[in-house]
Write a protein that binds this DNA or RNA. Structure first.
Lengths: 249, 249
DNA sequence: CGTGAGCTTGACTTGTTTCAACCAACGTGG
DNA sequence: CCACGTTGGTTGAAACAAGTCAAGCTCACG
């Protein structure tokens, strides 16, 4: 089998997750330096594991112990929970630079499974060192507590979407949220973005069936709101999408 | 207007939230004593505010700043978010002994509004003292990080419920979850519990309409699963309810 | 060339909402 | 003390949103 098509693990220079993000901060934190100091371009640190995984693999399962605190460097992944009867709910999509979950800094057992969407490269930070770094460095502590708040906010927003919004509303806001997160990372080319998600990913994320998601997307396409071709998505009418995502109903 | 019908603020002895819980730990933490030490029955601490609120009031609104870290002592409350068009989603029910949200230890602005269901008594812990206590006391730090994990787990479970479960399933598991939380606090009388929730609370919590919730509850009643009379609920057939909450569909 | 994963479309079913009417309990003010 | 408005609950009929089932299509891959 071919190896995943991703960059060499030890070159962080071109990593979109590099600039001003977690991966850098954590590396620095573990080395023990002050948070604010500049970091060299290649911030490879001893004792930080590098890993790669193929697309469509489950890296960790619900309840499994995760040895190191994982950060996504390249590719897309998702956290999900599965029910005994096959129903699934995707809780979050993980993009380059994302910590899988801040909870994993403090506990090793994962509450949900993590699966790759594309080929993925990720790094594992040693938990103990990270914990003591968090305890000792007030700024890192503040960062982590902010990430905690964000994580809860994300989960709550998902609950609102699923509980109180219609299908089109949910799908539109998912797409917009993803485009914003990609934009923050400098991963948008104008209004166009890489879009490796299959319809079943969207369905599992917004709590609908694949068929219905397909219908809604076809509707969006017909209305000239977006174009999806060849694993890439273009927002033809972001304002229109935004209108659907928010003020609808 | 009459004052809320609740116990005197400074008697914590009879408080169901007292034993082995947060309120006690936090009081102790602020005083600076070691976590494991025994606490006197009346653990009133200087600089901890006591408050009361009437039923059906909004105590804090989304985005408002909350001066002190609030813990519920008596009564039921809920955290919720409202949308511009009137739709609401309840994110969690707060029972005696619950911290409104662990996020509030680190930031003062609330992401969701907090409203009372019954008359409520709550205490406000000074944020700064609490923060330094968390930083200094490893056991308190561990407690808070555990609470953090629990909070995210709760939010994720809600998302799964709303995204992937049917109406009966959601309502049954809400009722069971509440009964378990009350049991932990010694607030169940056999299979009977205080149940101050209106149908609209349940509806907003499980993402359904009031009418539909009413129908499902009537169904449960007809099937002999539970009885609701006079603001109290009896689980006539907990096993049956549990079956509906989990293995259905 | 065959196979399987992913997408599209249509017909039909089910679950949930909406609208509406009605009832009971309760608190309030005249 | 009664009349009345309000809040909460129940029920039924009709409208609508989403799910299910099924068929066919493309494309990548071995």
């Amino acid at each position: 089998m071919e190896p995943p098509k991703i960059e060499s693990p030890d070159s962080c220079g071109g990593c979109p997750a590099f600039n001003d993000n977690l991966c850098r901060v954590l590396s620095k934190a573990i080395v023990g330096g002050p948070l604010a100091a500049n970091v060299t371009q290649n911030h490879f640190v001893e004792d930080v594991e590098d890993n790669v995984a193929h697309a469509r693999r489950t890296i960790w399962r619900e309840g499994e112990s995760i040895a190191r605190v994982p950060v996504i460097c390249q590719g897309w992944a998702a956290t999900a929970v599965a029910m005994s009867d096959g129903r699934r709910q995707i809780l979050s999509f993980l993009l380059p630079g994302d910590l899988v979950s801040a909870v994993l800094i403090f506990q090793s057992v994962s509450q949900c499974s993590v699966e790759t969407i594309t080929d993925v490269r990720y790094r594992g930070f040693p938990r103990d060192e990270l914990q003591t770094a968090v305890r000792r460095q007030p700024e890192l502590f503040a960062l982590v507590s902010r990430m905690w708040g964000d994580e809860i906010a994300r989960a709550d927003r998902l609950a609102i979407d699923l509980g109180r919004r219609g299908a089109a509303e949910r799908i539109a806001s998912l797409i917009l949220a993803l485009s914003e997160r990609l934009a923050q990372r400098g991963m948008m080319q104008g209004q166009t973005m890489d879009f490796p998600l299959r319809q079943h990913h969207i369905a599992d994320a917004v709590g609908l069936t694949v068929v219905h998601v397909g219908n809604v997307l076809a509707e969006f396409r017909r209305a000239g709101l977006l174009k999806i071709t060849d694993r890439s998505l273009t927002l033809s009418d972001p304002a229109g999408l935004h209108r659907i995502a928010t003020e609808m109903n």
